[in-house]
Deep mutational scan, measured.
Amino acid sequence: ALNRGDKVRIKRTESYWYGDVGTVASVEKSGILYPVIVRFDRVNYNGFSGSASGVNTNNFAENELELVQAAA
Score class of each variant (00 low, 15 high):
64 E>L: 15
12 R>Q: 05
11 K>R: 10
56 N>D: 12
7 K>S: 06
10 I>W: 02
27 V>K: 03
24 V>C: 04
6 D>E: 02
45 Y>M: 15
45 Y>W: 10
45 Y>C: 15
59 N>W: 12
69 Q>H: 09
7 K>Q: 10
5 G>Y: 03
22 G>M: 02
57 T>R: 05
57 T>N: 05
49 S>C: 15
40 F>D: 00
64 E>N: 02
23 T>P: 00
18 Y>H: 06
57 T>S: 07
41 D>C: 15
12 R>F: 03
49 S>D: 15
11 K>I: 12
13 T>V: 14
31 G>Y: 13
65 L>V: 09
42 R>Y: 04
22 G>L: 05
8 V>Y: 00
11 K>Q: 07
31 G>T: 12
67 L>G: 01
72 A>R: 10
1 A>D: 07
26 S>K: 13
22 G>F: 03
7 K>V: 09
28 E>A: 12
61 A>C: 09
13 T>E: 10
11 K>D: 03
67 L>V: 06
13 T>Q: 13
40 F>M: 03
40 F>N: 00
27 V>I: 10
5 G>P: 00
58 N>H: 14
2 L>Q: 01
42 R>F: 04
7 K>W: 07
43 V>I: 12
34 Y>Q: 07
25 A>S: 10
46 N>M: 08
5 G>V: 03
54 G>W: 07
72 A>I: 14
1 A>W: 13
52 A>D: 13
28 E>S: 12
57 T>I: 11
18 Y>A: 04
44 N>R: 12
56 N>S: 07
8 V>P: 02
13 T>W: 11
69 Q>T: 11
51 S>E: 12
4 R>P: 12
24 V>H: 01
44 N>G: 04
16 Y>D: 03
29 K>G: 12
38 V>P: 00
43 V>Q: 05
51 S>C: 15
54 G>H: 06
2 L>P: 03
25 A>K: 07
19 G>D: 08
37 I>M: 13
10 I>G: 00
52 A>I: 08
51 S>M: 10
22 G>P: 03
23 T>C: 11
16 Y>T: 03
46 N>R: 03
18 Y>T: 03
2 L>E: 04
36 V>I: 14
67 L>Q: 03
61 A>E: 05
6 D>W: 09
28 E>F: 11
71 A>N: 08
71 A>P: 07
38 V>H: 00
34 Y>G: 04
15 S>E: 01
12 R>G: 02
2 L>K: 01
7 K>E: 04
21 V>S: 01
58 N>T: 10
25 A>Y: 12
29 K>D: 10
8 V>N: 00
10 I>L: 14
37 I>V: 13
12 R>N: 11
53 S>H: 13
26 S>G: 12
28 E>P: 05
47 G>E: 15
46 N>F: 09
4 R>N: 06
21 V>H: 02
21 V>R: 00
9 R>A: 03
39 R>H: 07
14 E>W: 14
16 Y>E: 04
69 Q>Y: 09
12 R>Y: 03
6 D>S: 04
9 R>H: 03
16 Y>W: 08
57 T>G: 04
44 N>Y: 15
6 D>R: 02
11 K>G: 04
56 N>E: 06
65 L>K: 00
35 P>R: 13
26 S>A: 14
57 T>V: 10
52 A>N: 12
13 T>N: 07
16 Y>Q: 05
29 K>F: 07
14 E>A: 14
2 L>D: 00
35 P>Q: 13
27 V>D: 02
17 W>T: 00
43 V>G: 05
9 R>C: 11
48 F>S: 14
66 E>Y: 05
69 Q>I: 10
14 E>N: 13
25 A>M: 15
52 A>S: 11
20 D>W: 10
55 V>A: 06
38 V>Q: 00
40 F>H: 00
12 R>P: 02
70 A>Y: 13
34 Y>K: 10
72 A>F: 13
62 E>H: 14
53 S>D: 13
63 N>E: 11
59 N>V: 07
4 R>A: 11
18 Y>V: 03
26 S>L: 10
46 N>V: 07
39 R>T: 08
41 D>K: 09
36 V>S: 00
6 D>L: 04
2 L>F: 14
31 G>H: 11
4 R>H: 07
26 S>M: 08
8 V>T: 00
47 G>V: 08
22 G>N: 01
5 G>D: 03
49 S>W: 08
24 V>F: 03
13 T>K: 11
32 I>M: 11
59 N>M: 11
30 S>Y: 08
9 R>P: 01
48 F>I: 13
6 D>H: 02
27 V>T: 04
15 S>L: 07
45 Y>E: 15
18 Y>W: 05
7 K>I: 10
36 V>Y: 14
37 I>A: 07
6 D>Q: 03
26 S>W: 13
4 R>T: 10
63 N>L: 06
40 F>R: 00
51 S>K: 03
9 R>V: 08
55 V>P: 05
27 V>A: 02
25 A>C: 15
52 A>L: 10
30 S>Q: 08
27 V>Y: 09
26 S>Q: 11
61 A>I: 04
24 V>P: 01
16 Y>L: 05
33 L>A: 13
64 E>G: 01
64 E>T: 02
68 V>H: 02
30 S>V: 09
45 Y>R: 11
54 G>L: 11
50 G>F: 07
34 Y>P: 05
17 W>C: 04
49 S>M: 10
2 L>S: 03
40 F>A: 00
22 G>C: 05
32 I>A: 14
46 N>Q: 11
50 G>W: 09
61 A>W: 05
71 A>H: 10
11 K>S: 04
51 S>R: 03
39 R>A: 08
52 A>C: 15
38 V>W: 00
20 D>E: 10
71 A>C: 13
62 E>S: 08
28 E>N: 10
68 V>N: 02
22 G>E: 01
41 D>N: 08
39 R>Y: 10
44 N>W: 15
58 N>I: 07
32 I>G: 14
72 A>V: 13
26 S>T: 07
20 D>Q: 07
58 N>Y: 11
28 E>Q: 12
16 Y>C: 07
32 I>R: 09
39 R>L: 14
51 S>N: 11
46 N>I: 07
19 G>Q: 09
45 Y>H: 15
61 A>K: 08
1 A>T: 13
71 A>I: 09
21 V>M: 04
57 T>L: 08
43 V>D: 07
59 N>Q: 07
43 V>L: 08
18 Y>I: 02
71 A>M: 11
68 V>S: 01
52 A>E: 12
16 Y>G: 02
8 V>H: 02
14 E>L: 08
61 A>N: 11
1 A>K: 13
64 E>C: 04
38 V>N: 00
36 V>R: 00
22 G>Q: 02
9 R>G: 03
5 G>F: 05
23 T>E: 12
31 G>E: 12
14 E>Q: 10
66 E>L: 05
5 G>M: 01
41 D>T: 13
2 L>Y: 14
18 Y>C: 05
43 V>H: 08
24 V>Q: 01
43 V>M: 09
42 R>P: 04
63 N>I: 09
8 V>K: 00
10 I>M: 01
67 L>E: 01
49 S>H: 06
25 A>R: 10
51 S>A: 11
17 W>V: 01
49 S>I: 14
48 F>Y: 11
20 D>S: 07
33 L>W: 04
24 V>M: 01
62 E>Y: 14
44 N>F: 15
71 A>D: 09
19 G>M: 12
54 G>V: 05
31 G>R: 06
39 R>M: 12
51 S>F: 08
8 V>C: 07
29 K>H: 12
11 K>H: 11
60 F>C: 03
24 V>Y: 00
31 G>F: 12
22 G>Y: 05
35 P>L: 14
42 R>E: 07
27 V>G: 00
53 S>Q: 12
58 N>A: 15
59 N>E: 06
41 D>G: 06
36 V>N: 01
25 A>T: 11
35 P>E: 11
